[in-house]
Computed example of a mutant assay.
Amino acid sequence: MPGEITQELYGKTLKDGKDVNRYSLKNSSGSLVVRILDYGALISEIHVPDRNGKLADITPGFDNFADYESRNPYFGVINGRVAARTAGGQFTLDEKTYKLPQNWGQHSLHGGILGFNKRLWSGKVEGDKLVLKYVSADGEEGYPGELTTTVSYRVTDENELIIEYEATTTKPTPVNLTNHAFFNLAGHEAETMDDHLLTVPADTFLPQDDDYVPTGEIKQVEGTLWDLRKPVLLGERLLQVPGGKGINENYCLPPNDAGKLQLAAKFEHPPSGRYMECLTTEPGMQVYTGYYLDVQQGKGGAAYKRFGAIVLEAQHYPDSVHRPSFPNTIVRPGETYRQTTIYQFGVA
């Protein structure tokens, strides 16, 4: 028995009154329900069962579109055209320098002021997939080339949320797409994730400066607090990190043949039995434990506080456009950017 995808009007944009739709994706057993908006191509809800079969929504968000439009700290969105920080808010490509919005100090963050997270995508249902499309104009947020991006979402009876990305361009341009959903497996309203376990099977990570921009070095995790190769209890590890800012690191996953999925992270909540595995074709896993999270009146009146949820972003390395030694993020005409990331949910 196949699952189902339904569509409903969710709101209208404040500036131009355009319709915003919400899609509900449910597998055949109802053990995975995901809701997605065509604004920002964002994930607004993820409902999964605990060991007793009780469903809970495990991703923070808002109850109405107005809040997503006015005060969303990247809950569930697609970040692009380039996720993470681009140092200095500029880059040089083929001997031409491009200026980007500086929306994180002197740097550009997550595609700029009006990145993909604040754009209305076109949506359609194709079989068991929701396919969302956005055409980014040549010069939008300073980036060269018209970039056509599609992101598809699909849920399976194995309780997988499968996200597939494709992008093509009319001019050479950097592309680094990811989803920025937050997770707390105790439920979105839980105030901490101290009782969660985290594993990231990476031997190396990227040291960075105080603005979270990589220095260019690739360092072994061995002997550091960033070593997550075995499960760590977040409540203990976050207390140990100097400066009190938690984890906001890019992990370098093992070398991977093109198109092959590999485990990038496992997140577990022993009290409920829920766990989540992230598999991806990407070379990097950005782990962010929500230091800057501070939202009053989220879904159901929940308050989302510092270290109350985690982001596990499968992506290329940050600031790759300035680091030729990092995996390439430049897409050229005639090429197609592709990425697949799977969040698989289960019960221990």
Rank of each mutant, 00 (worst) to 15 (best):
E8C: 07
Y10E: 09
G11Q: 09
G11E: 10
L14Q: 10
G17I: 07
G17H: 14
G17T: 12
K18C: 04
R22G: 08
Y23D: 05
Y23V: 06
S24I: 04
S31T: 12
L32N: 00
L37K: 09
L37S: 07
D38R: 07
Y39I: 08
Y39H: 14
G40C: 02
I43F: 05
I43V: 15
V48D: 00
D50H: 04
R51Q: 13
G53E: 01
K54H: 09
K54P: 00
L55P: 00
A56W: 00
I58S: 05
T59Q: 06
T59S: 15
P60N: 13
G61P: 12
G61Q: 14
F62P: 06
D63L: 09
N64M: 03
N64H: 08
A66I: 14
D67C: 06
E69P: 04
E69V: 11
S70V: 13
R71P: 03
F75R: 07
G76L: 11
G76E: 11
N79A: 15
N79R: 03
N79H: 06
V82E: 10
A84H: 14
T86K: 04
T86H: 04
G88C: 13
F91N: 11
D94W: 03
T97H: 07
K99N: 13
K99V: 08
K99W: 02
K99P: 00
P101A: 10
Q102D: 05
N103C: 12
W104Y: 12
G105Y: 05
Q106I: 11
H110P: 11
G112S: 06
I113H: 06
G115Q: 05
K118C: 03
K118P: 01
L120E: 10
L120Q: 02
S122V: 10
S122C: 02
E126I: 08
E126L: 11
D128Q: 00
K129D: 07
K129G: 02
L132G: 06
V135H: 00
V135G: 02
D138V: 09
G139M: 05
G139W: 08
G139I: 06
E141N: 14
E141K: 06
G142N: 07
